[in-house]
Design a protein around this nucleic acid. Sequence first.
DNA 1: CGTTCTCTTGACTCATCTCAAATCTGGTGG
DNA 2: CCACCAGATTTGAGATGAGTCAAGAGAACG
Lengths: 249, 249
Amino acid sequence: MLPFSKASEITTRCGSCPIRFNAVCALCSPDELSHLDTIKSYQTYSAGDQIAWAGENMTHVGSVVSGVATLSSTMADGRRQMVGLLLPSDFLGRPGRDALAFDVMAATDITFCMFRKPDFEQTIANSHNLGRRLLQMTLDELDAAREWMLLLGRKTASEKVASLFVIMARRNAALQRHTPTGEGIFPLYLTREAMADYVGLTVETVSRQISALRREGLIELRDHRFVHVPDFERLLQRSAQEVDGGSLG
Amino acid sequence: MLPFSKASEITTRCGSCPIRFNAVCALCSPDELSHLDTIKSYQTYSAGDQIAWAGENMTHVGSVVSGVATLSSTMADGRRQMVGLLLPSDFLGRPGRDALAFDVMAATDITFCMFRKPDFEQTIANSHNLGRRLLQMTLDELDAAREWMLLLGRKTASEKVASLFVIMARRNAALQRHTPTGEGIFPLYLTREAMADYVGLTVETVSRQISALRREGLIELRDHRFVHVPDFERLLQRSAQEVDGGSLG
DNA sequence: CGTTCTCTTGACTCATCTCAAATCTGGTGG
DNA sequence: CCACCAGATTTGAGATGAGTCAAGAGAACG
Protein backbone atom coordinates (compact mmCIF):
# COMPACT_ATOMS: atom_id res chain seq x y z
CA MET A 1 0.00 0.00 0.00
CA LEU A 2 1.19 3.50 -0.78
CA PRO A 3 2.40 5.83 1.95
CA PHE A 4 -0.31 7.98 3.40
CA SER A 5 -0.47 10.90 5.70
CA LYS A 6 -2.26 11.18 8.99
CA ALA A 7 -5.32 13.32 8.78
CA SER A 8 -5.34 14.64 12.26
CA GLU A 9 -7.16 17.83 11.25
CA ILE A 10 -10.33 16.11 10.20
CA THR A 11 -10.43 13.53 12.96
CA THR A 12 -13.75 13.97 14.66
CA ARG A 13 -15.87 12.10 17.09
CA CYS A 14 -18.36 9.85 15.31
CA GLY A 15 -21.28 11.85 16.66
CA SER A 16 -20.34 14.85 14.57
CA CYS A 17 -19.03 13.02 11.53
CA PRO A 18 -20.30 14.32 8.18
CA ILE A 19 -21.21 10.86 6.91
CA ARG A 20 -22.76 9.81 10.18
CA PHE A 21 -26.24 9.17 8.78
CA ASN A 22 -25.38 7.32 5.58
CA ALA A 23 -22.31 5.28 6.33
CA VAL A 24 -21.99 1.77 7.66
CA CYS A 25 -22.35 3.18 11.17
CA ALA A 26 -25.68 4.87 10.38
CA LEU A 27 -27.74 2.53 12.56
CA CYS A 28 -25.35 2.41 15.49
CA SER A 29 -26.39 3.46 18.98
CA PRO A 30 -24.38 6.05 20.94
CA ASP A 31 -22.70 3.20 22.81
CA GLU A 32 -21.70 1.49 19.62
CA LEU A 33 -20.44 4.77 18.21
CA SER A 34 -18.21 5.43 21.14
CA HIS A 35 -16.70 1.99 20.70
CA LEU A 36 -16.08 2.76 17.01
CA ASP A 37 -14.45 6.01 18.10
CA THR A 38 -11.83 4.03 19.97
CA ILE A 39 -10.88 1.72 17.09
CA LYS A 40 -11.07 4.00 14.06
CA SER A 41 -8.30 5.88 12.33
CA TYR A 42 -8.24 8.27 9.39
CA GLN A 43 -6.19 7.70 6.26
CA THR A 44 -5.77 10.03 3.33
CA TYR A 45 -4.54 9.55 -0.23
CA SER A 46 -3.80 11.98 -3.03
CA ALA A 47 -5.59 12.07 -6.35
CA GLY A 48 -4.10 9.42 -8.62
CA ASP A 49 -2.74 7.23 -5.81
CA GLN A 50 -3.29 3.53 -6.16
CA ILE A 51 -4.88 2.66 -2.84
CA ALA A 52 -4.77 -1.09 -3.31
CA TRP A 53 -4.26 -3.70 -6.02
CA ALA A 54 -6.51 -6.60 -6.91
CA GLY A 55 -5.37 -9.70 -5.05
CA GLU A 56 -3.74 -7.72 -2.28
CA ASN A 57 -4.60 -8.40 1.32
CA MET A 58 -6.34 -5.43 2.83
CA THR A 59 -5.49 -4.99 6.45
CA HIS A 60 -8.18 -2.33 6.88
CA VAL A 61 -11.76 -1.72 5.87
CA GLY A 62 -13.66 1.51 6.15
CA SER A 63 -15.74 4.36 4.79
CA VAL A 64 -15.00 7.23 2.46
CA VAL A 65 -15.35 10.43 4.50
CA SER A 66 -14.55 12.86 1.70
CA GLY A 67 -13.31 12.49 -1.85
CA VAL A 68 -13.83 9.91 -4.57
CA ALA A 69 -12.24 6.54 -5.29
CA THR A 70 -12.74 4.05 -8.10
CA LEU A 71 -12.85 0.27 -8.10
CA SER A 72 -11.72 -1.32 -11.33
CA SER A 73 -10.76 -4.53 -12.98
CA THR A 74 -7.83 -4.78 -15.36
CA MET A 75 -7.14 -7.45 -17.96
CA ALA A 76 -3.72 -8.82 -18.81
CA ASP A 77 -3.55 -6.73 -22.00
CA GLY A 78 -4.49 -3.52 -20.21
CA ARG A 79 -8.20 -3.27 -20.97
CA ARG A 80 -9.86 -1.81 -17.91
CA GLN A 81 -13.40 -1.60 -16.63
CA MET A 82 -14.50 0.46 -13.70
CA VAL A 83 -16.80 -1.59 -11.49
CA GLY A 84 -17.45 0.75 -8.60
CA LEU A 85 -17.35 4.42 -7.73
CA LEU A 86 -16.87 5.21 -4.04
CA LEU A 87 -18.29 8.51 -2.83
CA PRO A 88 -18.46 9.83 0.73
CA SER A 89 -20.20 7.33 3.04
CA ASP A 90 -19.49 4.37 0.74
CA PHE A 91 -17.76 1.40 2.28
CA LEU A 92 -14.53 -0.20 1.09
CA GLY A 93 -13.50 -3.72 1.95
CA ARG A 94 -14.85 -7.19 2.43
CA PRO A 95 -15.18 -8.31 6.01
CA GLY A 96 -14.60 -12.06 6.02
CA ARG A 97 -12.42 -12.19 2.94
CA ASP A 98 -8.72 -11.56 2.67
CA ALA A 99 -7.95 -10.70 -0.91
CA LEU A 100 -9.37 -7.67 -2.61
CA ALA A 101 -10.97 -8.57 -5.94
CA PHE A 102 -10.38 -5.23 -7.67
CA ASP A 103 -7.96 -2.32 -7.96
CA VAL A 104 -8.77 0.74 -5.87
CA MET A 105 -7.61 4.20 -6.93
CA ALA A 106 -8.06 7.68 -5.54
CA ALA A 107 -9.84 9.78 -8.19
CA THR A 108 -9.50 12.89 -6.04
CA ASP A 109 -7.72 13.54 -2.77
CA ILE A 110 -9.58 11.30 -0.39
CA THR A 111 -9.97 10.55 3.31
CA PHE A 112 -11.11 7.24 4.76
CA CYS A 113 -12.34 6.36 8.21
CA MET A 114 -10.68 2.97 8.60
CA PHE A 115 -10.77 0.05 11.00
CA ARG A 116 -8.29 -2.77 11.25
CA LYS A 117 -10.14 -5.68 9.72
CA PRO A 118 -10.04 -7.96 12.76
CA ASP A 119 -11.34 -5.11 14.94
CA PHE A 120 -14.17 -4.48 12.54
CA GLU A 121 -15.10 -8.15 12.23
CA GLN A 122 -15.10 -8.43 15.98
CA THR A 123 -17.35 -5.40 16.26
CA ILE A 124 -19.76 -6.74 13.67
CA ALA A 125 -20.02 -9.95 15.63
CA ASN A 126 -21.16 -7.95 18.66
CA SER A 127 -23.10 -5.14 17.05
CA HIS A 128 -26.20 -6.22 15.25
CA ASN A 129 -26.69 -2.75 13.81
CA LEU A 130 -23.38 -2.61 12.05
CA GLY A 131 -23.95 -5.88 10.20
CA ARG A 132 -27.49 -4.94 9.40
CA ARG A 133 -26.43 -1.67 7.80
CA LEU A 134 -23.61 -3.33 5.92
CA LEU A 135 -26.10 -5.81 4.47
CA GLN A 136 -28.41 -2.98 3.40
CA MET A 137 -25.55 -1.15 1.74
CA THR A 138 -24.29 -4.25 0.01
CA LEU A 139 -27.74 -5.06 -1.34
CA ASP A 140 -28.01 -1.48 -2.65
CA GLU A 141 -24.64 -1.79 -4.31
CA LEU A 142 -25.70 -5.05 -5.89
CA ASP A 143 -28.80 -3.42 -7.37
CA ALA A 144 -26.65 -0.57 -8.65
CA ALA A 145 -24.16 -2.99 -10.17
CA ARG A 146 -27.00 -4.73 -11.97
CA GLU A 147 -28.34 -1.49 -13.43
CA TRP A 148 -24.83 -0.76 -14.52
CA MET A 149 -24.76 -4.14 -16.29
CA LEU A 150 -27.77 -3.07 -18.34
CA LEU A 151 -25.91 0.07 -19.33
CA LEU A 152 -22.78 -1.86 -20.32
CA GLY A 153 -24.54 -4.64 -22.16
CA ARG A 154 -27.36 -2.92 -23.97
CA LYS A 155 -27.08 0.84 -24.22
CA THR A 156 -25.71 2.86 -27.13
CA ALA A 157 -22.71 5.15 -26.71
CA SER A 158 -25.00 8.15 -26.55
CA GLU A 159 -27.24 6.56 -23.92
CA LYS A 160 -24.22 5.43 -21.94
CA VAL A 161 -22.78 8.90 -21.62
CA ALA A 162 -26.14 10.48 -20.85
CA SER A 163 -26.71 7.75 -18.21
CA LEU A 164 -23.33 8.49 -16.70
CA PHE A 165 -24.34 12.11 -16.12
CA VAL A 166 -27.71 11.04 -14.77
CA ILE A 167 -26.00 8.74 -12.30
CA MET A 168 -23.52 11.37 -11.22
CA ALA A 169 -26.28 13.95 -10.81
CA ARG A 170 -28.29 11.51 -8.70
CA ARG A 171 -25.45 10.44 -6.50
CA ASN A 172 -24.43 14.02 -5.98
CA ALA A 173 -27.98 14.97 -5.08
CA ALA A 174 -28.28 11.96 -2.77
CA LEU A 175 -25.31 13.21 -0.74
CA GLN A 176 -27.40 16.29 -0.03
CA ARG A 177 -30.48 14.18 0.60
CA HIS A 178 -32.58 15.18 -2.36
CA THR A 179 -33.26 14.02 -5.92
CA PRO A 180 -32.40 15.96 -9.06
CA THR A 181 -35.13 17.73 -11.08
CA GLY A 182 -35.19 20.60 -13.52
CA GLU A 183 -31.99 22.59 -13.48
CA GLY A 184 -28.92 21.54 -11.54
CA ILE A 185 -25.16 21.43 -11.35
CA PHE A 186 -22.70 18.87 -10.04
CA PRO A 187 -18.94 18.39 -9.89
CA LEU A 188 -17.25 16.18 -12.45
CA TYR A 189 -14.61 14.21 -10.58
CA LEU A 190 -13.68 11.91 -13.40
CA THR A 191 -11.29 12.34 -16.32
CA ARG A 192 -12.41 11.29 -19.80
CA GLU A 193 -10.41 8.14 -19.33
CA ALA A 194 -12.17 7.27 -16.08
CA MET A 195 -15.53 8.00 -17.70
CA ALA A 196 -14.61 5.73 -20.61
CA ASP A 197 -13.67 2.98 -18.17
CA TYR A 198 -16.95 3.55 -16.39
CA VAL A 199 -19.19 3.09 -19.41
CA GLY A 200 -17.09 0.67 -21.45
CA LEU A 201 -16.18 3.00 -24.32
CA THR A 202 -12.99 4.64 -25.62
CA VAL A 203 -12.03 8.16 -24.58
CA GLU A 204 -12.59 9.36 -28.13
CA THR A 205 -16.15 8.11 -28.19
CA VAL A 206 -16.88 9.59 -24.76
CA SER A 207 -15.49 12.92 -25.93
CA ARG A 208 -17.62 12.88 -29.09
CA GLN A 209 -20.75 12.03 -27.13
CA ILE A 210 -20.10 14.79 -24.62
CA SER A 211 -19.67 17.21 -27.51
CA ALA A 212 -22.98 16.02 -28.94
CA LEU A 213 -24.77 16.51 -25.61
CA ARG A 214 -23.33 20.02 -25.39
CA ARG A 215 -24.36 20.88 -28.94
CA GLU A 216 -27.88 19.77 -28.11
CA GLY A 217 -27.92 21.86 -24.95
CA LEU A 218 -28.49 18.87 -22.68
CA ILE A 219 -25.42 19.70 -20.63
CA GLU A 220 -23.03 22.59 -20.28
CA LEU A 221 -19.49 22.33 -18.91
CA ARG A 222 -18.37 25.02 -16.49
CA ASP A 223 -14.73 25.48 -15.47
CA HIS A 224 -14.08 22.01 -16.81
CA ARG A 225 -15.01 20.80 -13.37
CA PHE A 226 -18.75 21.18 -13.19
CA VAL A 227 -21.62 19.97 -15.28
CA HIS A 228 -24.64 22.20 -15.53
CA VAL A 229 -27.86 20.44 -16.51
CA PRO A 230 -30.59 22.85 -17.72
CA ASP A 231 -33.32 20.19 -17.76
CA PHE A 232 -32.75 16.97 -15.89
CA GLU A 233 -35.81 15.25 -17.34
CA ARG A 234 -34.58 15.81 -20.87
CA LEU A 235 -31.23 14.27 -19.99
CA LEU A 236 -32.98 11.37 -18.30
CA GLN A 237 -34.99 10.71 -21.42
CA ARG A 238 -31.82 10.69 -23.49
CA SER A 239 -30.29 8.13 -21.13
CA ALA A 240 -33.09 5.63 -21.86
CA GLN A 241 -33.23 4.99 -18.16
CA GLU A 242 -36.32 4.06 -16.26
CA VAL A 243 -37.58 6.93 -14.19
CA ASP A 244 -37.44 5.18 -10.82
CA GLY A 245 -34.12 6.51 -9.62
CA GLY A 246 -31.35 4.03 -9.18
CA SER A 247 -27.99 5.33 -8.08
CA LEU A 248 -25.20 3.20 -9.43
CA GLY A 249 -22.48 2.20 -6.99
CA MET B 1 -36.65 -29.61 -20.07
CA LEU B 2 -34.65 -31.31 -17.40
CA PRO B 3 -36.41 -33.85 -15.25
CA PHE B 4 -37.40 -32.67 -11.85
CA SER B 5 -39.59 -33.80 -9.05
CA LYS B 6 -42.79 -32.36 -7.68
CA ALA B 7 -42.43 -30.17 -4.67
CA SER B 8 -44.24 -32.60 -2.46
CA GLU B 9 -41.63 -35.27 -3.08
CA ILE B 10 -38.72 -33.04 -2.28
CA THR B 11 -40.17 -31.37 0.77
CA THR B 12 -37.75 -32.32 3.45
CA ARG B 13 -36.66 -31.28 6.86
CA CYS B 14 -33.89 -28.73 6.67
CA GLY B 15 -31.38 -31.15 8.16
CA SER B 16 -31.49 -33.33 5.05
CA CYS B 17 -32.00 -30.59 2.47
CA PRO B 18 -29.77 -30.87 -0.63
CA ILE B 19 -28.70 -27.23 -0.44
CA ARG B 20 -28.20 -27.31 3.31
CA PHE B 21 -24.51 -26.42 3.20
CA ASN B 22 -24.50 -23.64 0.64
CA ALA B 23 -27.74 -21.81 1.07
CA VAL B 24 -28.60 -18.86 3.27
CA CYS B 25 -29.19 -21.32 6.12
CA ALA B 26 -25.71 -22.82 5.85
CA LEU B 27 -24.47 -21.39 9.14
CA CYS B 28 -27.62 -22.08 11.13
CA SER B 29 -27.57 -24.18 14.28
CA PRO B 30 -29.92 -27.17 14.67
CA ASP B 31 -32.22 -24.97 16.77
CA GLU B 32 -32.35 -22.30 14.12
CA LEU B 33 -32.98 -24.91 11.46
CA SER B 34 -35.93 -26.36 13.27
CA HIS B 35 -37.39 -22.88 13.49
CA LEU B 36 -36.91 -22.44 9.75
CA ASP B 37 -38.62 -25.78 9.23
CA THR B 38 -41.76 -24.36 10.78
CA ILE B 39 -41.96 -21.24 8.62
CA LYS B 40 -40.78 -22.45 5.22
CA SER B 41 -42.87 -23.56 2.27
CA TYR B 42 -41.99 -24.91 -1.15
CA GLN B 43 -43.07 -23.28 -4.40
CA THR B 44 -42.54 -24.56 -7.90
CA TYR B 45 -42.69 -22.94 -11.33
CA SER B 46 -42.49 -24.35 -14.84
CA ALA B 47 -39.82 -23.47 -17.36
CA GLY B 48 -40.70 -20.19 -19.00
CA ASP B 49 -42.89 -18.91 -16.17
CA GLN B 50 -42.44 -15.32 -15.16
CA ILE B 51 -41.90 -15.62 -11.41
CA ALA B 52 -42.05 -11.89 -10.73
CA TRP B 53 -41.88 -8.55 -12.51
CA ALA B 54 -39.59 -5.64 -11.76
CA GLY B 55 -41.35 -3.21 -9.45
CA GLU B 56 -43.63 -5.87 -8.02
CA ASN B 57 -43.85 -6.38 -4.29
CA MET B 58 -42.48 -9.76 -3.35
CA THR B 59 -44.34 -11.28 -0.44
CA HIS B 60 -41.77 -14.06 -0.12
CA VAL B 61 -38.03 -14.50 -0.20
CA GLY B 62 -36.16 -17.76 -0.41
CA SER B 63 -33.64 -20.14 -1.93
CA VAL B 64 -33.54 -22.11 -5.15
CA VAL B 65 -33.66 -25.78 -4.20
CA SER B 66 -33.51 -27.20 -7.71
CA GLY B 67 -33.68 -25.69 -11.17
CA VAL B 68 -32.52 -22.40 -12.67
CA ALA B 69 -33.98 -18.90 -12.76
CA THR B 70 -32.80 -15.69 -14.37
CA LEU B 71 -32.87 -12.10 -13.17
CA SER B 72 -33.09 -9.55 -15.92
CA SER B 73 -33.69 -5.93 -16.69
CA THR B 74 -35.81 -4.81 -19.63
CA MET B 75 -35.83 -1.43 -21.34
CA ALA B 76 -38.94 0.29 -22.69
CA ASP B 77 -38.08 -0.69 -26.27
CA GLY B 78 -37.54 -4.34 -25.37
CA ARG B 79 -33.78 -4.51 -25.07
CA ARG B 80 -33.02 -6.92 -22.27
CA GLN B 81 -29.97 -7.69 -20.15
CA MET B 82 -29.66 -10.63 -17.83
CA VAL B 83 -28.20 -9.48 -14.52
CA GLY B 84 -28.31 -12.62 -12.44
CA LEU B 85 -28.49 -16.38 -12.82
CA LEU B 86 -29.97 -18.24 -9.86
CA LEU B 87 -28.82 -21.83 -9.40
CA PRO B 88 -29.62 -24.20 -6.52
CA SER B 89 -28.73 -22.63 -3.15
CA ASP B 90 -28.88 -19.07 -4.53
CA PHE B 91 -31.12 -16.64 -2.70
CA LEU B 92 -33.94 -14.59 -4.22
CA GLY B 93 -35.34 -11.47 -2.63
CA ARG B 94 -34.34 -8.41 -0.72
CA PRO B 95 -35.11 -8.45 2.97
CA GLY B 96 -35.83 -4.87 3.97
CA ARG B 97 -37.04 -3.66 0.60
CA ASP B 98 -40.47 -4.03 -0.91
CA ALA B 99 -40.14 -3.67 -4.64
CA LEU B 100 -38.16 -6.09 -6.70
CA ALA B 101 -35.70 -4.30 -8.97
CA PHE B 102 -35.63 -6.89 -11.76
CA ASP B 103 -37.70 -9.45 -13.64
CA VAL B 104 -37.41 -13.05 -12.46
CA MET B 105 -38.04 -15.94 -14.83
CA ALA B 106 -37.85 -19.71 -14.53
CA ALA B 107 -35.29 -20.96 -17.07
CA THR B 108 -36.11 -24.57 -16.19
CA ASP B 109 -38.74 -26.07 -13.94
CA ILE B 110 -37.74 -24.81 -10.55
CA THR B 111 -38.46 -25.27 -6.86
CA PHE B 112 -37.93 -22.63 -4.19
CA CYS B 113 -37.78 -22.94 -0.43
CA MET B 114 -39.64 -19.77 0.49
CA PHE B 115 -40.38 -17.73 3.60
CA ARG B 116 -42.94 -15.00 3.98
CA LYS B 117 -40.87 -11.87 4.03
CA PRO B 118 -41.95 -10.64 7.47
CA ASP B 119 -41.21 -14.09 8.94
CA PHE B 120 -37.80 -14.07 7.37
CA GLU B 121 -36.97 -10.55 8.49
CA GLN B 122 -38.07 -11.44 11.99
CA THR B 123 -35.87 -14.52 11.94
CA ILE B 124 -32.88 -12.55 10.70
CA ALA B 125 -33.35 -10.13 13.57
CA ASN B 126 -33.04 -13.02 16.01
CA SER B 127 -30.58 -15.28 14.26
CA HIS B 128 -27.16 -13.80 13.87
CA ASN B 129 -26.10 -16.69 11.63
CA LEU B 130 -28.75 -16.11 9.02
CA GLY B 131 -27.84 -12.47 8.52
CA ARG B 132 -24.16 -13.28 8.53
CA ARG B 133 -24.56 -15.85 5.78
CA LEU B 134 -26.79 -13.54 3.75
CA LEU B 135 -24.12 -10.86 3.93
CA GLN B 136 -21.46 -13.33 2.76
CA MET B 137 -23.64 -14.42 -0.15
CA THR B 138 -24.49 -10.86 -1.12
CA LEU B 139 -20.83 -9.85 -1.09
CA ASP B 140 -20.03 -12.85 -3.30
CA GLU B 141 -22.79 -11.87 -5.69
CA LEU B 142 -21.48 -8.35 -5.81
CA ASP B 143 -18.02 -9.59 -6.75
CA ALA B 144 -19.57 -11.78 -9.40
CA ALA B 145 -21.63 -8.89 -10.76
CA ARG B 146 -18.48 -6.83 -11.01
CA GLU B 147 -16.62 -9.51 -12.95
CA TRP B 148 -19.62 -9.70 -15.20
CA MET B 149 -19.33 -5.94 -15.77
CA LEU B 150 -15.80 -6.45 -17.07
CA LEU B 151 -17.16 -9.03 -19.49
CA LEU B 152 -19.95 -6.74 -20.69
CA GLY B 153 -17.85 -3.62 -20.99
CA ARG B 154 -14.56 -4.81 -22.33
CA LYS B 155 -14.58 -8.29 -23.80
CA THR B 156 -14.93 -9.24 -27.46
CA ALA B 157 -17.82 -11.42 -28.66
CA SER B 158 -15.55 -14.43 -28.80
CA GLU B 159 -14.24 -13.84 -25.27
CA LYS B 160 -17.75 -13.24 -23.99
CA VAL B 161 -19.07 -16.56 -25.21
CA ALA B 162 -16.00 -18.47 -24.02
CA SER B 163 -16.36 -16.72 -20.64
CA LEU B 164 -20.00 -17.74 -20.48
CA PHE B 165 -19.04 -21.39 -20.79
CA VAL B 166 -16.25 -20.97 -18.26
CA ILE B 167 -18.69 -19.47 -15.80
CA MET B 168 -21.27 -22.18 -16.35
CA ALA B 169 -18.64 -24.89 -15.98
CA ARG B 170 -17.43 -23.34 -12.74
CA ARG B 171 -20.84 -22.85 -11.24
CA ASN B 172 -21.81 -26.38 -12.16
CA ALA B 173 -18.62 -27.73 -10.63
CA ALA B 174 -19.14 -25.61 -7.53
CA LEU B 175 -22.51 -27.26 -6.92
CA GLN B 176 -20.57 -30.50 -6.63
CA ARG B 177 -17.92 -28.86 -4.52
CA HIS B 178 -15.02 -28.99 -6.90
CA THR B 179 -13.38 -26.82 -9.56
CA PRO B 180 -13.19 -27.65 -13.24
CA THR B 181 -9.93 -28.84 -14.80
CA GLY B 182 -9.02 -30.81 -17.91
CA GLU B 183 -12.01 -32.57 -19.41
CA GLY B 184 -15.56 -32.02 -18.23
CA ILE B 185 -19.22 -31.78 -19.12
CA PHE B 186 -22.06 -29.62 -17.87
CA PRO B 187 -25.72 -29.03 -18.67
CA LEU B 188 -26.69 -26.06 -20.78
CA TYR B 189 -29.88 -24.63 -19.27
CA LEU B 190 -30.03 -21.53 -21.38
CA THR B 191 -31.45 -20.91 -24.83
CA ARG B 192 -29.42 -18.88 -27.34
CA GLU B 193 -31.60 -15.94 -26.52
CA ALA B 194 -30.90 -16.22 -22.79
CA MET B 195 -27.20 -16.58 -23.51
CA ALA B 196 -27.32 -13.47 -25.69
CA ASP B 197 -29.05 -11.56 -22.89
CA TYR B 198 -26.41 -12.82 -20.51
CA VAL B 199 -23.41 -11.56 -22.45
CA GLY B 200 -24.94 -8.53 -24.15
CA LEU B 201 -24.85 -9.79 -27.74
CA THR B 202 -27.45 -10.77 -30.33
CA VAL B 203 -28.51 -14.42 -30.77
CA GLU B 204 -26.87 -14.47 -34.18
CA THR B 205 -23.52 -13.42 -32.83
CA VAL B 206 -23.75 -15.93 -29.99
CA SER B 207 -24.58 -18.65 -32.46
CA ARG B 208 -21.65 -17.72 -34.68
CA GLN B 209 -19.25 -17.70 -31.74
CA ILE B 210 -20.49 -21.07 -30.54
CA SER B 211 -19.95 -22.45 -34.03
CA ALA B 212 -16.42 -21.04 -33.99
CA LEU B 213 -15.65 -22.63 -30.61
CA ARG B 214 -16.94 -25.97 -31.92
CA ARG B 215 -14.86 -25.74 -35.10
CA GLU B 216 -11.79 -25.12 -32.98
CA GLY B 217 -12.58 -28.07 -30.76
CA LEU B 218 -12.83 -25.99 -27.61
CA ILE B 219 -16.33 -27.25 -26.90
CA GLU B 220 -18.59 -29.99 -28.19
CA LEU B 221 -22.38 -29.99 -27.89
CA ARG B 222 -24.03 -33.25 -26.88
CA ASP B 223 -27.77 -33.81 -27.20
CA HIS B 224 -28.17 -30.04 -27.50
CA ARG B 225 -28.35 -30.04 -23.72
CA PHE B 226 -24.82 -30.63 -22.58
CA VAL B 227 -21.52 -28.99 -23.26
CA HIS B 228 -18.44 -31.18 -23.29
CA VAL B 229 -15.17 -29.37 -22.70
CA PRO B 230 -12.11 -31.39 -23.75
CA ASP B 231 -9.60 -29.01 -22.17
CA PHE B 232 -10.85 -26.48 -19.65
CA GLU B 233 -7.57 -24.58 -19.53
CA ARG B 234 -7.69 -23.95 -23.25
CA LEU B 235 -11.22 -22.59 -22.95
CA LEU B 236 -10.16 -20.44 -20.01
CA GLN B 237 -7.36 -18.96 -22.06
CA ARG B 238 -9.78 -18.11 -24.84
CA SER B 239 -12.05 -16.35 -22.35
CA ALA B 240 -9.29 -13.90 -21.41
CA GLN B 241 -10.28 -14.44 -17.82
CA GLU B 242 -7.93 -14.31 -14.92
CA VAL B 243 -7.15 -17.76 -13.58
CA ASP B 244 -8.35 -17.19 -10.02
CA GLY B 245 -11.81 -18.61 -10.30
CA GLY B 246 -14.70 -16.24 -9.93
CA SER B 247 -18.20 -17.64 -10.37
CA LEU B 248 -20.57 -15.07 -11.69
CA GLY B 249 -23.89 -14.71 -9.93
C1' DC C 1 6.37 30.10 -21.61
C1' DG C 2 7.79 25.72 -22.92
C1' DT C 3 6.67 20.83 -21.81
C1' DT C 4 3.47 17.47 -21.01
C1' DC C 5 -0.84 15.64 -20.45
C1' DT C 6 -5.70 15.82 -21.51
C1' DC C 7 -9.19 16.59 -24.59
C1' DT C 8 -11.29 17.20 -29.19
C1' DT C 9 -11.97 16.32 -33.95
C1' DG C 10 -11.34 13.99 -38.42
C1' DA C 11 -10.81 10.05 -41.60
C1' DC C 12 -10.97 5.41 -42.04
C1' DT C 13 -11.56 0.42 -40.42
C1' DC C 14 -13.76 -3.38 -38.54
C1' DA C 15 -16.58 -6.01 -35.18
C1' DT C 16 -21.01 -6.63 -34.34
C1' DC C 17 -25.79 -5.82 -35.64
C1' DT C 18 -29.62 -6.19 -38.95
C1' DC C 19 -32.27 -8.39 -42.17
C1' DA C 20 -33.23 -12.54 -44.59
C1' DA C 21 -33.33 -17.28 -45.62
C1' DA C 22 -32.23 -22.10 -44.81
C1' DT C 23 -31.99 -25.83 -41.47
C1' DC C 24 -32.77 -28.26 -37.42
C1' DT C 25 -35.64 -29.77 -33.33
C1' DG C 26 -39.30 -31.25 -30.62
C1' DG C 27 -44.05 -31.68 -30.28
C1' DT C 28 -48.71 -32.87 -32.27
C1' DG C 29 -52.23 -35.19 -34.48
C1' DG C 30 -53.52 -38.40 -37.99
C1' DC D 1 -44.89 -44.38 -36.65
C1' DC D 2 -44.76 -40.59 -39.73
C1' DA D 3 -45.78 -35.96 -41.76
C1' DC D 4 -46.26 -31.47 -40.50
C1' DC D 5 -45.68 -27.16 -37.89
C1' DA D 6 -43.86 -23.65 -34.83
C1' DG D 7 -40.09 -22.24 -32.70
C1' DA D 8 -35.07 -22.33 -32.14
C1' DT D 9 -30.75 -22.26 -34.34
C1' DT D 10 -27.47 -21.53 -37.95
C1' DT D 11 -25.59 -19.16 -41.80
C1' DG D 12 -25.03 -15.46 -45.25
C1' DA D 13 -24.70 -10.65 -46.99
C1' DG D 14 -24.71 -6.06 -46.23
C1' DA D 15 -25.12 -1.87 -43.02
C1' DT D 16 -23.43 0.76 -39.21
C1' DG D 17 -21.86 2.23 -34.63
C1' DA D 18 -17.93 2.40 -32.19
C1' DG D 19 -12.93 1.64 -32.41
C1' DT D 20 -8.26 2.94 -34.26
C1' DC D 21 -4.90 5.98 -35.76
C1' DA D 22 -3.43 10.58 -36.29
C1' DA D 23 -3.20 15.42 -35.70
C1' DG D 24 -4.21 19.68 -33.50
C1' DA D 25 -6.07 22.61 -29.55
C1' DG D 26 -6.41 23.47 -24.62
C1' DA D 27 -5.02 23.16 -19.76
C1' DA D 28 -1.92 22.35 -16.15
C1' DC D 29 2.68 22.49 -14.17
C1' DG D 30 7.01 23.67 -13.25
